[in-house]
Amino acid sequence: LPHRKPVSCSAHAENKVVTLLLGAEPEKVCAMPDPALPDSDIKALTTLCDLADRELVLNISWAKHIPGFSSLSLSDQMSLLQSAWMEILVLRVAFRSLPCDDRLLFADDYIMDAEQAKCAGLLELHTAILQLVRRYRCMSLEREEFVTLKAIALANSDSMHIEDVEAVQGLQDALHEALLDYECVHHSEDPRRAGKLIMTLPLLRQTSAKAVRHFCSIKQDGRVPMHKLFLELLEANI
């Protein structure tokens, strides 16, 4: 097949959008499981929900640093985040887990293997996220690609409540172009690499939907304390 030649393959110049995205990456968050609580499924889920809540605060601040995101209306910013928040969390866990064998690195102090996931009732989700990790590991996903793909996942969240569709399309185009430009400069040996990365997004959406369903049922159960932002976003997906 003929190769598509990206318009802006700026020979070896670093892509400005990718550079900004690298600079916007939130700092690591520690899980800090409560040492006073005995090990149990409730403790594991409480730790994860607390970690997710703190990461969400950072992810909202991160979104503001995506070039062009803050130019969208507040309503459209909210709609994108309400649709994509779990995809962003899952993609971050998947990227962090790339160096781990069959374990998920939720945080440096909270790494979960299949046995621990089973005890927490999270085996299905653990398996699904590991499928994503394997996909990225096969491609040797780079940090630059990860940050760009994460921004694309947000801009491409398919919310049904977008008011200015053209503006959101403009953001998608700018981020897509940044990915094409990066791949053109750094992976000219594989002209389909950008497409391969984009083609991982359906699995990310599927895994994220699984996670939302699971945490919604935990919420219904009422045994795990959840912070307000996490609850607010879970409710946005019901």
Binding site: S61, A63, K64, G68, S70, L74, M78, L81, E232
Partner: peptide, 20 residues
């Protein structure tokens, strides 16, 4: 959207927006 007060507040408060 009325219900999503925390998200709304965090979006309004976060600093350093970047324009294209």
């Amino acid at each position: 959207k009325e219900k999503h007060k925390i998200l709304h507040r965090l979006l309004q408060n976060s600093s350093s927006p970047v324009d294209l």
